[in-house]
């Protein structure tokens, strides 16, 4: 049953990822990424990461993807030209990506980490629940947590500065 759930999630995640890079219209790519993220959240649940799965759905598939949809609707779906700046790029790039995958697989499967072979150790009840993650975040990783909130603030201000209309350029702007 668990293997079936894993393969359904894996096929969804992989199919979504391939659709993101294969579809020519950016708007459809964004929608394919939503499929990918939801499948990935299912895999997170299989790994006992309940809080992360919920955060993935709420933060990513909810908030970030809405931002993507708005921007891709704003700039319009422009089809990419077939023109290639580097000859053979369309054939060379998948080849390089395949080489990268082989390399990562060798690195992962060639390690002598015996814990990776089984299902992993039995975990206590409440592993990955919001309560235990929150305890870790507010006790052991408090500085990282505060730094993350500062980073989000800086990014929000930066986005407003970048996207805002200059007054001299467009005096009638909002």
């Amino acid at each position: 049953m668990e293997a079936l759930a894993f393969f359904v999630g894996a096929i969804g995640a992989l199919g979504g990822a391939i659709a993101v890079i294969a579809l020519r219209n950016p708007f459809y790519s964004v929608l394919a990424l939503v499929v990918h993220l939801v499948s990935l959240a299912a895999l997170f649940l299989l790994l006992n990461a309940e809080f992360l799965a919920a955060a993935q759905i709420v933060v990513y598939a909810g908030a970030v993807m809405v931002l993507y949809v708005f921007v891709s609707a704003y700039v319009g779906g422009s089809e990419e030209p077939i023109w290639e700046p580097i000859p053979g790029q369309r054939f060379l790039a998948p080849l390089l990506a395949g080489a990268l995958f082989v390399e990562i697989s060798i690195a992962v499967l060639g390690t002598a980490l015996t814990t990776l072979e089984g299902d992993g150790p039995d975990v206590r009840l409440g592993f990955g629940s919001p309560a235990s993650i929150g305890e870790l975040l507010l006790e052991r990783y408090l500085i990282a947590f505060e730094a993350a909130s500062l980073l989000l603030l800086v990014a929000a201000v930066g986005a407003v500065v970048l996207a805002a209309r200059k007054r001299r350029e467009a005096p009638h702007g909002a």
Partner: peptide, 12 residues
């Protein structure tokens, strides 16, 4: 499911 499968999927 062995955890290696997750790592291979992540590499892919």
């Amino acid at each position: 499911m062995a955890l290696e499968w997750y790592l291979v999927l992540s590499g892919l």
